[in-house]
Design a protein around this nucleic acid. Sequence first.
DNA 1: ATATTTTTAGACAGACTTGTCCAAATCGTC
DNA 2: GACGATTTGGACAAGTCTGTCTAAAAATAT
Lengths: 219, 219
Amino acid sequence: MTPADTPDISVHRSHSAKRHSIIDAAASVFCREGFAGANIDLIAAEAGVSRQTVYNHHGDKENLLVAVVREITERINAGVFETLATFPDKPVDLEAELVAFAVRLNQNCMCNRDGKFLRKLLQAEGSRYPELFAGWREHGPAKTWAALAARFARLAHAGWLEIDDPDVAARQFLALVNADLQMAMIFGDTLSEEQLRQAATNAVRTFLRAFGKARRNTT
Amino acid sequence: MTPADTPDISVHRSHSAKRHSIIDAAASVFCREGFAGANIDLIAAEAGVSRQTVYNHHGDKENLLVAVVREITERINAGVFETLATFPDKPVDLEAELVAFAVRLNQNCMCNRDGKFLRKLLQAEGSRYPELFAGWREHGPAKTWAALAARFARLAHAGWLEIDDPDVAARQFLALVNADLQMAMIFGDTLSEEQLRQAATNAVRTFLRAFGKARRNTT
DNA sequence: ATATTTTTAGACAGACTTGTCCAAATCGTC
DNA sequence: GACGATTTGGACAAGTCTGTCTAAAAATAT
């Protein structure tokens, strides 16, 4: 009897739209105030809904935190995957392309709102709710490192790099990229693109000094 | 948990000893629960004093936080200074000595209780109480980096290293040393000495691949 | 237009904290 | 042993926050 539109979907859409705005507001407040300091009235106000609606959707405060963490980790994983796909597999100017890749990685994954939130919440509540981040801990960084290591291994095989242990090289690449940003990130500062580019340039230069070959040997 | 079974101990402590044990307990609780979640009754219990004594010594909660941060930053600065003094200025086996130095740096400064506390509190409350960490922000990492950069510059001048920008090299050295420890540190895990040594070994190897000279050229 | 579901505003109890006050117990010192 | 300073335990008010409940309002589907 439902001719054209499916009521479940439209209901679901408004439902999930509110759900989403609540999660967004909760992420913002949790990040600013911490879990203990977060106020559900404030989250409701920031989401533009009543407090009761927050409880209708997510139950209690701890449950809301779970929903927020799940959402954010999914978004981050998607961003990482998407950015990894832009790795310079067939480079022409390896240095320039690695710099651009590093900038993308920072902009899309490490330095954006989600990255900041996850880092902050991880450090604040990671030991209190280990099960919250167990999934991410297992599949997040390890998978990223492995994927990046595979790319570097391929570049090494193609004669661009000279790498003993691709896993170590991948971790060190990421560490170098963040070397100049640590302090700003820990303080929650927002980084200009110029800063990101400078940091990536320094990092890639050193990375290639350690692992680059003087000249490529493939066609 | 409750030190009620050993009242003699708490009774016998002097005024300044109590002050110190309060700051220690407060640091522990602030670090575990965050500022908003920290409970003064719990701090008092963990310090083995009554709640009133906490208020007698440090006034209100915010004041207690100030005292704790001051104490911790002083201890960290002392540890950094002390460790920097053990930098291999006249190395025989540069690689081995840099590895040992990196291990000391992590054990005494970055990975110990104080370092964990400062990192955690900085990220949780750094943007809420910027004046709390303003002094450290200005004089902490910048001074460390500058001091380390000066050491590397001297090594370069002595023919051990080939470095364009000693400041960048110093930051990258620290970043590399932490590359394998990031995840464990963010989760608050305690690191075995073997892990620290392995991380330092990987870091120094890459650092010397980038900046080391094949052979020293001085006497 | 009507029926059903969702949302809202507000009140509410229960629990928890902070910071103060005070009288009694205890400590260091003479 | 006595004295002054410190510490203690407990009571206390004032405030905040969570989570529930209710009846009215709004939105949506039929």
